[in-house]
């Protein structure tokens, strides 16, 4: 187990280095590269820019600069937002709870609904329900999240007036109930794609378990069908889904960005877009790197949890 965790950590570390190299390349694509924060200042002259470049060490070889930049990231120095001068990390951590709340809300919905649909499709495989679920899952994967959000707002806020059209809470309120009501629509919209993916994988995972010998044994012993399904089948079928949850993390974070924009949810995605609009490159880069690290941590965690539950899982 320890060997597995160490090996997996080592893999993540290598990936982290590669991720940071890609991030550094993206940073250098910004207008003015690392100098972007200064070149946009009003009244900045070419001479002054050259001096800053010299001071920032931009005339050193690229790999030295990269190591320098990466070392600062490790130390937690992610630069300062040039909208308000706050350190990037504290800007990000101030909006992170909202994004995490949205992601958790939508994950709960997609796991619950996806599992039910997936298991039912597998048990009744070949039925009308199974076919309809298959088709709907593919359509759900094809609907743009933001459009689904717009249409939901139109139906449930504009026409029916059941749910608030955006924001995380009513100004002046902010009770748990108020936030929950605001959370319902965005998390369902964000969950749409994941319900589709989760139900498909759950279906095939359940089908695989249903064909195993120990299920036949349980049936032969006369265990009640419901008990077989809940205890024997679902426990085993859910196991590979932990890794799937880790794999789906990038899509979930990306989807959160779009959902937050449509519902003016004050999270990391909105911050990212606002920062893009203000040319606030340190924050843009910060969120880009932060989300990649979040993904790496998520998949690391998912793999370790799977390995802890299932001793058959080996490091490949």
């Amino acid at each position: 187990m320890i060997a597995f965790i160490l090996g997996r950590l080592w893999q993540s570390l290598i990936l982290l280095v590669l991720v940071s190299i890609i991030g550094y390349c993206v940073l250098n694509l910004a207008p003015g590269g690392p100098l972007s924060q200064y070149s946009l200042m009003p009244g900045m002259t070419k001479e002054a820019l050259d001096r800053i470049a010299e001071q920032m060490g931009l005339n050193r070889p690229l790999y030295v600069q990269y190591v320098d930049w990466a070392w600062k990231l490790v130390q937690g120095d992610w630069g300062k937002s040039f909208r308000d001068g706050r350190p990037v990390l504290s800007v990000i951590s101030s909006v992170l709870p909202a994004t995490l709340l949205l992601m958790v809300g939508s994950t709960i919905i997609s796991v619950l609904i996806g599992t039910v649909i997936g298991v039912y499709s597998a048990v009744r495989s070949g039925s009308v329900f199974d076919y309809v679920a298959t088709v709907l899952a593919m359509v759900a994967l094809s609907v743009p999240t933001f459009w689904f959000g717009l249409i939901s707002i139109y139906v449930f806020s504009v026409k029916l007036g059941w749910l608030p059209a955006g924001n995380m809470m009513t100004p002046g309120d902010g009770s748990v109930w108020d936030v929950t009501v605001h959370l319902i629509m965005p998390s369902i919209v964000l969950a749409l794609v994941n319900v589709a993916i989760w139900s498909r994988y759950m279906r095939s995972s359940t089908l695989e378990v249903l064909g195993q010998d120990f299920i036949r044994t349980a049936r032969a012993k006369g265990v009640r069908p419901r008990r077989i399904l809940v205890k024997h089948v679902m426990g085993n079928a859910l196991l590979p889904m932990i890794a799937l949850a880790g794999m789906q993390l990038p899509a979930l974070i990306g989807g959160a960005l779009v959902t937050e924009t449509v519902f003016t949810w004050p999270g990391m995605g909105r911050l990212f877009l606002d920062s893009l609009g203000y040319n606030d490159y340190p924050v843009v880069m910060g969120i880009l790197m932060f989300s990649a690290i979040l993904v790496l941590l998520g998949s690391l965690l998912a793999d370790i949890i799977s390995a802890m539950i299932d001793p058959r899982i080996q490091l490949n």
């Binding site: 990936l15 590669l18 993206v26 694509l29 990038p250 893009l276 843009v284 880009l288 989300s291």
Partner: peptide, 23 residues
């Protein structure tokens, strides 16, 4: 393949937007 994995670690919408804003 590790480079491929590294690219997969970025939520593609974030990477796309950053690139689109910079270029």
């Amino acid at each position: 393949m590790r480079i491929t994995d590294a690219f997969l670690s970025f939520p593609s919408v974030f990477l796309l937007l950053a690139l689109a804003a910079f270029i």
